[in-house]
């Protein structure tokens, strides 16, 4: 009996290029490098600032937030504005969609308003895939976080930051600490690091916050933070949600900090030039000590600027691929038409 091990990759077009960005799983190194390189070109090397460019003028992007998130929404909006796109942001509470109008009706309604791209944040894993399967062929879907599944742009910006600070990701040892199980960011980070062939990916946390089969994700598991931090180049902290205490996965914030909190003493176990990252917002004194968060090895604030550039890159690459595909198809059609008319001429003779 044939086991269908890989799902068809609906995020790539006929030319094997990015059509939607739903997850990093299944993408090749070249896809990621193209995004990271393009992101680089949006940043002015002198000022480290991001200039506005007229690239997506006339394109309409809709940010659909089925799960509220001011921070992610804002970075997407800034990125879209810097690309000169027309943008519309909608907070859609799931309760409203459950009241009669189905999720798809909502989507099709918005699609009818001439959208070229949907940026979607949703509380359900797989929601971005679902939307991508049901939008019109010319509409693109960008996953801004779906349930516990994926948050590809966040992971890409982390890769961008690592590359900026450490050069090639190949050959780096990276430790991710905290709530691995419930984090879509971590899932995407792990995929990005594997695609970019990081030398070793470690996850550190209590068993209750790790998935049942961490090995399936291609990582090494450590339950002891001191052991896991030995010799790493990059330390990624994960935000601890309050709900984890409520569902008895860990005893208390205090105990978590005692066992897994990143302190200066613990950070000293990593390589001396190791960097510390955190997708924010930070729980000081829960997962990370203030001295570390504000310390010399922390790159937490720089991540924010890079997030804009990376999102600009993803959006312009997706639109660019669509343009190239359309052009190629038009040329193909023209060739076929010419061949046909030649054949007709032949026939007439």
């Amino acid at each position: 009996m044939k086991a269908r091990l890989t799902a068809p990759n609906i995020q790539l077009n006929e030319q094997g290029k990015l059509k939607h960005l739903l997850t990093l799983e299944g993408l090749k190194q070249q896809h990621l490098l193209e995004i990271l390189d393009t992101a680089e070109s949006f940043i002015d090397p002198n000022s480290n600032k991001i200039k506005k460019v007229p690239l997506l003028r006339g394109k309409s992007i809709m940010n659909l937030f089925f799960e509220p998130s001011t921070r992610t929404r804002t970075t997407f909006e800034i990125a879209e504005k810097r690309l000169s796109a027309d943008i519309e942001s909608l907070d859609i509470q799931t309760s409203a969609t459950k009241k009669g109008e189905s999720l798809l009706d909502t989507l099709w309604n918005l699609q009818a308003m001439q959208a070229d791209m949907f940026v979607i944040r949703h509380a359900e894993s797989g929601a971005a895939h679902f939307f991508a399967q049901h939008v019109a062929p010319h509409v693109h879907v960008l996953n801004a976080g779906d349930g516990q599944h994926a948050h590809p742009t966040q992971a890409l910006l982390d890769m961008f930051t690592i590359r900026k600070k450490k050069g090639d990701i190949f050959d780096l040892k990276v430790a991710i600490i905290g709530d691995i199980l419930h984090s879509r960011v971590v899932r995407s980070q792990i995929q990005a690091l594997s695609i970019l062939e990081a030398r070793e990916i470690r996850v550190i946390g209590p068993k209750t916050l790790l998935p049942e089969n961490p090995e399936a994700l291609g990582v090494h598991v450590y339950h002891d933070i001191e052991e896991g931090l030995q010799d790493v180049d990059v330390v990624i902290m994960v935000r601890l949600q309050n709900e984890r205490m409520k569902s008895a996965l860990i005893p208390s914030e205090k105990e978590f900090f005692k066992r897994y909190g990143l302190t200066e003493k613990r950070l000293a176990l990593a390589k001396p030039d190791a960097i510390v990252m955190h997708p924010g917002p930070i729980n000081r004194g829960v997962e990370i000590d203030s001295a570390v968060a504000d310390g010399a090895q922390s790159v937490i604030l720089e991540q924010v600027t890079y997030g804009i550039a990376v999102r600009m890159a993803v959006m312009s690459i997706i639109m660019s691929n669509a343009a190239q595909l359309a052009q190629q198809q038009a040329e193909q059609q023209e060739r076929e038409f010419n061949l046909e008319s030649e054949a007709e001429v032949e026939g007439a003779r």
Binding site: E25, S125, G126, D146, G147, Q148, H149, A150, R184, R187, P211, E212, N213, P214, A216, L217
Partner: peptide, 15 residues
């Protein structure tokens, strides 16, 4: 199912 697939897809798992 609580296995490699739910781990990869981030689907709430049933052990």
């Amino acid at each position: 199912h609580d296995g490699p697939v739910s781990s990869r897809l981030g689907l709430p798992a049933i052990s």
